[in-house]
């Protein structure tokens, strides 16, 4: 058995990682909650955001955290455009079509990255990447602490937008009753695109927070997508606080089951939670009724 110090440190690690997972899941849950689609291109968009962070750093020496300020609006616009110009018109409201189109988008983006950047695994190395905060017997990675804080801030901002602003109200109205909202004069297509844009902006933030400690290659998104799905389900599809708490929980479970069962089999813990939640409480912790 492990000493309490190790268990506690593993839990801290789990929470820090979980916050980043939550940030990635945020975009997914937002898009699901409003558009009712499962966005297969999520991982590929994350990968492109990570490449953007990497590129800005290598070519222009932009700090990854600074890059977020630039990339979040850019990715918002990109997401807005993709939904407005590609997914929306091509899908014509059919679920099967949306599935195919987001799948097609992910193939396109992933291979565009491959063609543009090659398949090499790249990473950013700066002194800050290796910085630690010493707290008693624990060595806590500074970039991951920043990631944790960043993730909480973004969640709070999104939550504020959704619950306190007019745009948020429109989004929620569309999520609840599309037809009714459009009768009230809400431009549903615009709301969809804004939502998709917000999801992409969240990914850009996640990319900036991840790059100091992670690496990027065209297929990197795949590593995070399954876990994001689990978090979305656990937190309740469409719920922003659900995504955050779900992310932290999953991070914790992954960390502890990885420690106790081994990293490889530890992944099973996540899927078992996933399956149990679906079978026992498919609306998740905070989800509205299905």
């Amino acid at each position: 058995m492990y000493s309490p110090t190790i268990l506690i440190e593993a839990m801290i690690n789990g929470l820090l990682t979980g916050a980043i997972y939550a940030l990635i899941a945020l975009g997914l849950t937002l898009v699901y909650g409003v558009l009712h689609i499962i966005n297969f291109a999520h991982g590929a968009i994350l990968a492109s955001a990570m490449f953007a962070v990497w590129g800005l750093n290598v070519l222009a020496g932009v700090d990854p955290y600074l890059a977020i300020l630039l990339l979040a609006p850019v990715f918002f616009c990109l997401g807005y455009g993709v939904q407005r110009l590609v997914i929306g018109p091509a899908a014509k409201g059919d679920d099967g079509n949306i599935l195919l189109i987001t799948l097609g988008l992910s193939i396109f983006i992933e291979n565009a990255l491959l063609a543009g950047f090659g398949s090499d695994t790249r990473s950013i190395s700066s002194d800050f990447s290796f910085a630690v905060v010493e707290a008693g017997p624990f060595l806590i990675s500074s970039p991951r602490l920043v990631g944790f804080a960043g993730s909480l801030i973004v969640t709070a901002i999104l939550w504020f937008i959704m619950s306190r602003t007019d745009a948020g109200k429109a989004i929620r109205a569309v999520a609840r009753e599309k037809l009714g909202a459009s009768l009230m004069g809400i431009d549903v297509g615009h709301v969809y695109a804004v939502t998709f844009g917000l999801g992409c902006a969240a990914l850009a933030v996640a990319a900036g927070l991840l790059m100091p400690t992670f690496y990027v290659n065209p297929r990197v998104g795949g590593a995070f997508v399954n876990i994001a799905f689990t978090i979305v389900v656990l937190g309740g599809m469409g719920s922003i606080p659900g995504a955050m708490i779900g992310g932290l929980l999953i991070g914790l479970v992954e960390s502890l089951s990885g420690l106790l069962l081994g990293e490889s089999l530890g992944q099973i813990g996540i899927f078992i939670i996933f399956i149990l939640v679906l079978l026992l409480k498919p609306t998740g912790l905070f989800g509205a009724k299905a």
Binding site: G104, F108, N111
Partner: peptide, 11 residues
Amino acid sequence: IPGIDLMVFAV
């Protein structure tokens, strides 16, 4: 250049 063919496929 690898990837171009799959991009066309996706389009």
